[in-house]
């Protein structure tokens, strides 16, 4: 199982030719209690860096960017009623959406887990 990370604190977990996307545990710890998530519609396409979702904590709204280009093939509907899942399991059950990658080569420019952890240490 291969997981990639961005400096914007998103993760991408490859599952065959599709990928799950979410925000990192560090991101949820910074956001605090998540109270609402706005997910994209299935069928929407994103270029890397596009605003893909919005996550709202008690404090504020934050954009979540598409870490890679892709087509949305599923979203985590459970988050609508249980947004706190993101705080409990940001890198597991708190996933946001499933993408079919349109530019798989973009993965090479993302961080691996070791590099991401080192990056978080600098914050």
């Amino acid at each position: 199982m291969t997981v990639y990370f961005t400096k914007d604190h998103e993760w991408v977990r490859l599952e065959g030719d599709s990928a799950l996307v979410g925000i990192t545990d560090y991101a949820q710890s910074q956001l605090g209690d998540v109270v609402y998530v706005e997910l994209p519609e299935v069928g929407k396409t994103f270029a890397k860096g596009d605003e893909a979702a919005v996550v709202e904590s008690v404090k504020a709204a934050s954009d979540v960017y598409a870490p890679v280009s892709g087509l949305v093939i599923a979203v985590n509907a459970k988050l609508a009623d249980a947004p706190g899942t993101i705080n409990e399991a940001a890198e597991g059950d708190g996933w946001f959406m499933k993408l079919t990658l349109t530019e798989p080569g973009e993965l090479e420019n993302l961080l691996d887990e070791t590099a991401y952890k080192a990056f978080v240490e600098t914050l």
Partner: peptide, 10 residues
């Protein structure tokens, strides 16, 4: 202090 470890909601 905007919050303590308990978190805003709690």
């Amino acid at each position: 202090p905007v919050q303590y470890p308990l978190g805003i909601l709690s």
